[in-house]
Write a protein that binds this DNA or RNA. Structure first.
Length: 544
RNA sequence: GCGCCCGUAGCUCAGCUGGAUAGAGCGUCUGACUUCGGAUCAGAAGGCCGGGGGUUCGAGUCCUCCCGGGCGUACCA
C-alpha cells in the first residue's frame, strides 16, 4: 500500500511540477485517526524549493490523485500542508482475509531471511545464582532472539563463560573454607570470598560425597569443579524457568587451547599495535583515539578479560555469523571500542558485530535503592523474584521499558503486583476471547462457512482490524530496533481495541453472517495476541 | 577532568528517528450494559518536555552551553 501511494504521489507531482526531480516521498501513519490512514509531508518539504505556500502545493497534488482505482477513499489537505489519505474499506477486508488465512504464521517476515545471527547473552560466570540484575540481560537477549527469528533470521543463543579466572579461584577457596569449617577446623574465611549460603551447601555436598579427607591445598580443583557444576545447574534451571534455553555454552578456555589468544597477540604485534612495558603486554589503544593504552597481559602473565574478548569475537565471525549481537550492561560498554578496533586490525569486518547496551536496574526495596553484590551475598535472586510474582510478570517487567533507560524495579510493588499487573491486561484479552468462542460454538454452527469481513463496518471493528494489520510491521520495527518494549506497547493497543470492540459489538444474538464475521475477527485477534506474547516468552492462557 | 547513557503528568515510562492538539499505566475524582468474563469500558483533573541559546516552514526529537543523576575512565570481571 505504501508503494502504491508513493507511486500515486510521484505521478501527481510530475503534473504539478514537471521540471522537478522526484524527491524522496515519505509516508507515515498519522497519530490521530482523524487524519486518515496515511499521510505525506512532501508539500512541506517542497515549499522551499518551489517557493510556494505548502498548502497550495498540497492542494495541487491532492487534486491530481487518481481515485478511480478504488483503493483510496479520500484525499484531503490538512494542517500546514499534509496530504491525508483514507483507505477504502475493501482494502482493509482484503488484508484481513489474508491475515485470517495465514493464521499462526501471521506476522512472520522475511526481512532477515538467510541471515545467521548469534545473540550472546547472560554470560554470567558461575560464581553464584542469577540475580535480578542478570534478569534484564537474560530476558532482553532471549526476546530479541525470538523477534529476530520472527523476522526470518536463523538465530543461535550463546552463553559465554570463564571457569578459570581469579573469580573462580576465590570461589573455590570460599567453598574449601566452608568445608574445613564443617569438619571442625578453625580457618579464616578468605578475604573478599563469596559469603552466600549456597557456598556452604556446596561444601556440605562435597563432604557427603568425598568424606573429610580433602584438607590439603592440592584438593582445591575438586571444590572448584563442584562449585561450578552446582552453580551452573542452578543457572540452567533458573533460565529454563524463565522460558530461556541456550543453544550453546562457550568456554573462554577453548580460546587458549586452540591458540587463538596467541594468534591475536601475534597479529596485533605485526601491525605494531602491541608493545611491552613494565612487564606487561599492552594494546596501543591510543592509536584509536583513547586517552590511555590498555593492558592485555598483566605482569603476572595473566591476561585481562579484554584479550579473550577480542579472540572470542573473532571466533564468532569465523563461525560465519552475519551478525554477532552482544547484550551488555552499561558497565561493560568501555571494552566494546577496544574489541571493535582489535577485530578490525586483525582484518575482520567489525560491522558484523553489534552491541545492545542496557542501563542498570535499580532495585528499590522498602523505598530505598538496594545495592547488590554477589560476593557479599546481599542480592535478590531471579528465583526469589519468580517465587513472588511468577515468570510471566518477571519477563514482562524487564521488557516494558526501552533498554537504554534506567529501569527502576520496585520489589515491594512487583511482589504485590498480583492482579494489577499490566501483563494480565494482555492475557485477559486472550482468555476472554477463548471464553466467548466457547459460548459461540454452542449457539451457532459455522462449519464449512466462510466469513464475509465486509460486514464489519463499526468503528470499533475497523479500529481493531487496523491494529491487527499493523502486526507484521511491528515485528520488523521491533527486530530492527531490537527494542521489545515496542511490541509490548503494540499489544497493549491491540488489547485496548479488542476490549473496546467487546463493549460495543456483540456476537451472541446477532444474525449468523455478522456473528460469523465477528467470531473470525476475534480468532485473528487471539492469534496475534498469542503470537505477540509468544515472542515475549510469556504464557498465553485460555482461562485465568 | 574526559567518554557513554538518562532527565517528559504526583509516580513509573512511551513518543514510530524532524511533523498536525505531547500519550499510556499506576494513583486521584466521576460515571457504565438486569444477556458473550467488571482483571473491562467511558470521562475528568494533572505539563515552561531540566534550563538558556541556535538550526528551519516546523524541535520533546538535531547542534551548542549550563544544571542534575547513573555508568565507565584498573596490570578487577
Amino acid at each position: 500500500m505504501q508503494d502504491y501511494l508513493k507511486e500515486q504521489i510521484a505521478r501527481a507531482l510530475k503534473k504539478v511540477a514537471p521540471d522537478l526531480e522526484t524527491p524522496e516521498i515519505t509516508i507515515e501513519k498519522p497519530r490521530s485517526t482523524e487524519h486518515g490512514d496515511a499521510a505525506t509531508n512532501v508539500a512541506l518539504t517542497l515549499a522551499n524549493v518551489l517557493k510556494e505556500n505548502p498548502r497550495s502545493i498540497a492542494q495541487k497534488i491532492a487534486d491530481q490523485i487518481d481515485l478511480s482505482t478504488g483503493h483510496i477513499r479520500g484525499v484531503e489537505v490538512a494542517g500546514p500542508g499534509f496530504i491525508n489519505f483514507r483507505f477504502a474499506g475493501n482494502w482493509l477486508t482484503d488484508q484481513l482475509v489474508e491475515a485470517h488465512r495465514t493464521g499462526r504464521e501471521f506476522g512472520k517476515g522475511r526481512m532477515l531471511e538467510h541471515k545467521k545471527i548469534q545473540v550472546e547473552f547472560v554470560s554470567a560466570n558461575p560464581t553464584g545464582p542469577l540475580t535480578v540484575g542478570h534478569g534484564r540481560n537474560a530476558v532482553l537477549g532471549d526476546t530479541i532472539a525470538r523477534v529476530l527469528e520472527w523476522a526470518g533470521a536463523d538465530v543461535q543463543r550463546e552463553y559465554y563463560f570463564n571457569n578459570a579466572g581469579r573469580q573462580m579461584r576465590v570461589l573455590a577457596e570460599s567453598v574449601r573454607a566452608r568445608y574445613l569449617q564443617a569438619i571442625g577446623q578453625d580457618v579464616v574465611f578468605p578475604e573478599g570470598g563469596y559469603e552466600g549460603a549456597y557456598i556452604t551447601e556446596i561444601a556440605e555436598r562435597v563432604l557427603e560425597k568425598h568424606g573429610d579427607s580433602l584438607t590439603g591445598e592440592e584438593h582445591l580443583p575438586v571444590f572448584r569443579q563442584a562449585a561450578e557444576e552446582s552453580i551452573f545447574e542452578d543457572i540452567r534451571q533458573t533460565l529454563a524457568r524463565m522460558n530461556i534455553s541456550m543453544d550453546s555454552f562457550f568456554n573462554e578456555n577453548t580460546l587458549y587451547e586452540d591458540g587463538s589468544i596467541d594468534k591475536v597477540i601475534a597479529t596485533l604485534r605485526d601491525k605494531d599495535l602491541v608493545f611491552e612495558q613494565d612487564g606487561a603486554t599492552w594494546f596501543k589503544t591510543t592509536a584509536f583515539g583513547k586517552d590511555k593504552d590498555t593492558v592485555l597481559i598483566k605482569s603476572t602473565g595473566e591476561p585481562t578479560y579484554r584479550l579473550p574478548d577480542i579472540a572470542y569475537h573473532i571466533n564468532k565471525l569465523e563461525r560465519g555469523f552475519d551478525l554477532a549481537l552482544d547484550i551488555f550492561g552499561a558497565d561493560h560498554i568501555a571494552t566494546y571500542p577496544d574489541v571493535v578496533a582489535a577485530v578490525q586490525a586483525c582484518g575482520f569486518d567489525s560491522d558484523r558485530i553489534d552491541v545492545i547496551v542496557y542501563q542498570f536496574v535499580t532495585i528499590v526495596k522498602d523505598g530505598k535503592p538496594f545495592k547488590m553484590s554477589t560476593r557479599k551475598a546481599n542480592f535478590v535472586t531471579l528465583d526469589e523474584l519468580m517465587d513472588e510474582v511468577g515468570a510471566d510478570v518477571t519477563r514482562f517487567f524487564f521488557l516494558m521499558r526501552a533498554p537504554g533507560t534506567h529501569l527502576e524495579f520496585d520489589l515491594n510493588e512487583a511482589k504485590q503486583a498480583g492482579e494489577k499487573n499490566p501483563v494480565f491486561y494482555l492475557q485477559y484479552a486472550h482468555a476472554r476471547i477463548q471464553s466467548i468462542m466457547k459460548k459461540v460454538r454452542n449457539h451457532y454452527d459455522f462449519t464449512g462457512k466462510a466469513p464475509d469481513f465486509s460486514l464489519l463496518a463499526h468503528d470499533a471493528e475497523t479500529t481493531l482490524i487496523k491494529r491487527i494489520l499493523e502486526f507484521p510491521d511491528v515485528i520488523l520495527l521491533t527486530a530492527g530496533q531490537r527494542e521489545p518494549h515496542k511490541l509490548i506497547q503494540y499489544l497493549n493497543e491491540l488489547a485496548t481495541a479488542f476490549h473496546k470492540f467487546y463493549h460495543d459489538c456483540r456476537i451472541l444474538g446477532e444474525d449468523e453472517q455478522l456473528a460469523l464475521a465477528r467470531t473470525e475477527l476475534l480468532t485473528v485477534t487471539a492469534t496475534v495476541m498469542a503470537n505477540g506474547l509468544g515472542i515475549l516468552g510469556i504464557s498465553v492462557p485460555d482461562r485465568m
